[in-house]
Design a binder for these strands. Structure first.
Length: 229
DNA sequence: CACCAGGCAAGTA
DNA sequence: TACTTGCATGGT
């Protein structure tokens, strides 16, 4: 019941999502560095919890690489408590700022001058930064044309029969990047729209009967209905 | 009460 | 390579 993911189909899906949800204006952050902090703090965590943590860091003037480097682990961990896994995430923030300081003299501008595939590998070499976090940083802070895959992306694509369960991160990423123009603005909006759909209509408990998309569900399940537009 | 949220790394076989 | 487990808060 799996239909091929063609360029036409992916673009049709994009246009449908954009018309339904409108531009998502991602990533919500006041600076590139704040965006990167958010990417680490939101790992397996609700964004509302991350917002509180970032607000506390801002209030304590701790939203710069140098301040995070200098702050004691316990201080940092207490500030980001609301984002969960706070001991690990405090360490991960310090891993990143340590990398930035050592490798690029603390300059994000210099870091983002590195060519895309190489910078991706460097980010993946930092303990605490995996594929999704690395790609989020590259796309949303660096404005580089790389597609971000997350749990919502995977679930939406599975429910709509574009991938099978177990498809790897790189395969899903390549599904988009092989068929769409290498356009950071497009990848930015597309990923954010997939998350918007996932949050409302494609939760773990299926509510696909009200999904605004026209695509059929795989394997004899309830066909998607069109919402009034 | 149970389940979920914009993952990741370390351990095991 | 392919699982499994620990990490933790706040909302529904």
């Amino acid at each position: 019941m799996q239909r091929p993911a063609t360029r036409r189909r992916l673009m049709a899906l994009y246009r449908r999502l954009l018309r339904h949800f409108g531009p998502q204006l991602w990533w919500p952050a006041r600076s590139r560095f704040e965006m990167i902090v958010g990417a680490i703090l939101t790992q397996n965590t609700a964004w509302t919890n991350v917002k509180r943590a970032i607000a506390r860091m801002r209030a304590e003037r701790l939203l710069t690489p140098d301040r995070i480097d200098a702050a004691p682990h316990g201080t940092l961990a207490r500030l980001i408590r609301s984002s969960g896994y706070y001991n690990m995430k405090a360490g991960r923030l310090k891993q990143f700022t340590g990398f930035l300081s050592t490798r690029y003299g603390g300059s994000l501008t210099r870091m983002f001058q590195t060519e895309l595939p190489r910078l991706r590998e460097e980010l993946l070499g930092i303990s605490g930064i995996g594929e999704e976090t690395a790609d989020s940083i590259l796309l949303y802070a660096g404005n580089r044309p790389i597609f971000v895959v997350d749990a919502y992306t995977r679930r939406v694509l599975e429910r709509h029969g574009l991938i099978r369960a177990g498809t790897s991160y790189r395969e899903i990423q390549w599904l988009f990047m092989d068929r769409l123009p290498a356009d950071a603005a497009l990848f930015n909006e597309y990923h954010a729209l997939l998350v918007a759909l996932g949050k409302v209509y494609c939760q773990k408990t299926p509510r696909c009967d009200v999904c605004p998309l026209r695509y059929d569900l795989p394997d004899g399940r309830v066909p998607t209905q069109l919402r009034a537009r």
